[in-house]
Amino acid sequence: MDDDAINTMSFEQAMKALEDVVTRLERGDVPLDESIALYEQGAKLKKRCETKLKEAEEKVAAITLDGDGTPKGTTPVEGL
């Protein structure tokens, strides 16, 4: 899987791919060279998941609520 494919994944896609990598590594039947490549891919997938979570957290934090809990607008978040 190349970097462009990883960088366009949704959070759910990246998490599933990361789970698949971890499962393969945990089985222990993968040759060393392939294990290294899987580990590198897993690190990229982990970073993608973290990025998507951070984006979601920033969007949620930007929502302001009025007294009864109704969203009354959003506040722009730097970088979005």
Rank of each mutant, 00 (worst) to 15 (best):
M1V: 13
A61E: 09
A5M: 08
K54C: 06
E50N: 11
A5S: 10
A43P: 02
V77Q: 15
E78Y: 07
A17F: 00
V30A: 02
T8R: 07
A14V: 02
D20K: 03
A61K: 11
L65G: 04
A62P: 04
R48P: 05
P71I: 01
E40G: 13
T64K: 15
T64H: 13
I63D: 02
V77M: 13
E26A: 15
L53T: 11
Q13I: 05
E78I: 04
A5R: 08
V21A: 00
F11P: 00
A61Y: 03
K52N: 13
K44E: 05
K16Q: 02
Y39I: 08
E12H: 00
K16H: 01
G42R: 05
K52Y: 03
D3A: 11
T8K: 06
E34Q: 14
L38M: 12
K72M: 13
E55L: 09
T51D: 11
V77K: 15
K59F: 09
V77W: 14
I63Y: 04
E26N: 15
K46H: 06
M1T: 15
C49I: 09
L32E: 09
I63L: 06
N7T: 07
P76E: 04
D66Q: 03
R48T: 04
M9A: 01
R27G: 14
D20H: 01
A61I: 04
L18Q: 01
G28K: 10
E78H: 09
D2K: 10
G73T: 06
K54I: 08
G69N: 00
L65W: 07
I63Q: 05
A61W: 03
D4S: 14
I6T: 02
P71E: 01
E57V: 08
E50F: 13
P31W: 03
K16I: 01
I36N: 12
A56F: 12
L80A: 08
Q13T: 06
S10N: 00
K72Q: 14
K44H: 09
I63W: 04
L80V: 03
E12S: 03
R27D: 12
V21L: 00
A62I: 02
A62R: 06
I36F: 13
K72W: 11
T70W: 06
D29Q: 08
T64E: 14
L53V: 12
T64A: 13
M1A: 15
G73Q: 06
K47D: 13
E58H: 14
G73I: 05
E78K: 14
L38C: 04
D4F: 10
E78M: 10
L65V: 06
K54R: 11
K52M: 13
